[in-house]
Design a protein around this nucleic acid. Structure first.
Length: 397
RNA sequence: GCGUCGGUGGUAGAGUGGUCAAUUACACCUGACUGUAAAUCAGGCGCCUUCGGGCUACGCAGGUUCAAAUCCUGCCCGGCGCA
């Protein structure tokens, strides 16, 4: 993998660039489409391609459990397996340490916290039922599919990701919950650093020809000192790029990302893990992130929420039943050119599979082309004007 | 015509004297969703309310009872059986 910076966004950490992988290039900033189980839910790869996506990200944990990374290896890697002819990434499974561990069963805990800090005092921090438990060696977890026990280590994650065969892979990290105290954040951060070193060592043994790029993951929660420490230490390791992970408060997300990217080596690409609501992308780009992935566009789509330039709309709302206008009258996507809100509303109400497909095409097109436009606006020197006009309209109530 | 079973909220269908404004499901209304345990989840769903409560409701009309969706009588409507 190679990365070149093409232009910078004056007065910010933002830049445009090109990532060259063995399976094609990624013009950055770019939105990475999530295809967890080697499928972008509800879509064919042709649809994913034609909506403008450049790169797909799959998940180590999920593919390891089903159908198994050995089988994916036999298939020629997950890209070939799913018939995606383009750049790919895999997440390390580190996020599942969070979602199946500390966040398990807690509907209110997500990686982006609402409002003030949700850190609970150490004294009130008690163990909850969960599917994952962490030790220095790695993470023991129970399969959410059949309850069987498994053990992930940095070495195992590297091995699985090698078998899955993505162009860009991530070091095994611990994504902490926003509900844990700072003392734990610190402990987890140190462990993630040691896991990063082990990930590099393990990957070097597997990938002797340097086919896969390995990105280290910067954690540190919402604490400036920890974030900066992580950026310095992880940034000093021999990674090809970096992922910024963990939990944020919505308001502090961009500043936290800025702390990190001010320190990370600028010549290496940075991926903001799991972030991707429209309003978040601007903050991410300005603060030096090159790529983003997020399940929001596809999950929201399947659940009936669609992006429009005037904000999100819920297609299940009664008012759309006889609304024969397009989802977004200014959108050029296949859905907006060919279908009405009333039709989408009907498909959702009738529980037809096509609802999820059409909505996913629209939402992904919306996000992917939003980031494309952000990129273009940096080249054109119109970024600030574009951001202003987009956000004013998108966020107005 | 006789007999018999049954008529419950938008629908299906529980309930068979008080704890029933009525289980449950679906439908309907609204909200949530950020490295996918997710085509998922949560709340609401008779009318009014100063949120204490008040009012009207289980085919219709009467009656028994302190108390009826629940018991009795008549009527109306539907299924089935016999003529």
């Amino acid at each position: 993998m190679q990365f070149s910076i093409n232009k910078t966004l004056p007065g910010t950490l933002g830049r445009t660039g090109t990532i060259t992988t063995p399976h094609g290039t990624i013009e950055t900033p770019a939105f990475v489409v999530v295809g967890t189980k080697a499928t972008v839910k509800a879509l064919t790869p042709e649809q994913v391609r034609s909506l403008g996506a450049q790169v797909v990200l799959a998940n180590t944990y999920h593919l390891y459990l089903q159908p198994g990374d050995e089988l994916v290896k036999q298939a020629g890697g997950f890209a070939k397996f799913m018939n995606w002819n383009g750049p790919t990434m895999t997440d390390s499974g580190g996020f599942q340490v969070f979602s199946l561990g500390e966040a398990f069963g807690k509907g209110g805990v997500s990686k982006v916290a609402k409002g003030e800090s949700v850190i609970v005092p150490e004294s009130e921090h008690t163990a909850h039922a969960k599917l994952a438990s962490i030790s220095e060696e790695g993470v023991e977890f129970s399969s959410h599919i059949d309850g069987s026990k498994h053990f992930f280590t940095p070495e195992r994650s590297m091995e699985i990701q090698w078998n899955l065969g993505a162009d860009i892979i991530f070091a095994f990290d611990e994504c902490t919950s926003p509900t844990v105290p700072e003392s734990y954040q610190r402990e987890a951060l140190d462990r993630t650093y040691r896991w990063a070193q082990r990930s590099i060592t393990a990957h070097e043994k597997l990938d002797t020809e340097n086919k896969q790029a390995l990105f280290g993951v910067v954690q540190g929660g919402q604490v400036k000192e920890l974030r900066e420490h992580a950026a310095r230490t992880i940034g000093a390791l021999n990674f090809d790029g970096f992922g910024i992970g963990g939990s944020f408060t919505k308001e502090d997300m961009y500043t936290a990302v800025g702390w990190v990217n001010a320190i990370l080596p600028p010549e290496k690409p940075r991926h903001l893990l799991g972030i991707g609501e429209p309003e978040d992308l601007f903050g991410g780009v300005e603060n030096g992130c090159d790529t983003f992935d997020c399940v929001a566009p596809t999950r929201m789509a399947r659940n009936g929420t669609l992006y429009t330039k005037d904000g999100k709309i819920n297609m299940l709302n009664a008012k759309f039943v006889n609304d024969f206008s397009p989802v977004d009258s200014t959108c050029q996507c296949y859905i907006c050119m060919n279908y009405t809100r009333a039709y989408l509303a009907h498909l959702f109400r009738a529980n037809e599979m096509l609802a999820g497909t059409l909505a996913s095409i629209h939402n992904l097109h919306f996000i992917v082309s939003l980031v494309d436009t952000i990129r273009a606006s940096i080249y054109d020197d119109t970024y600030c004007a574009f951001k202003e006009s987009f956000l004013t309209r998108f966020l107005k109530k």
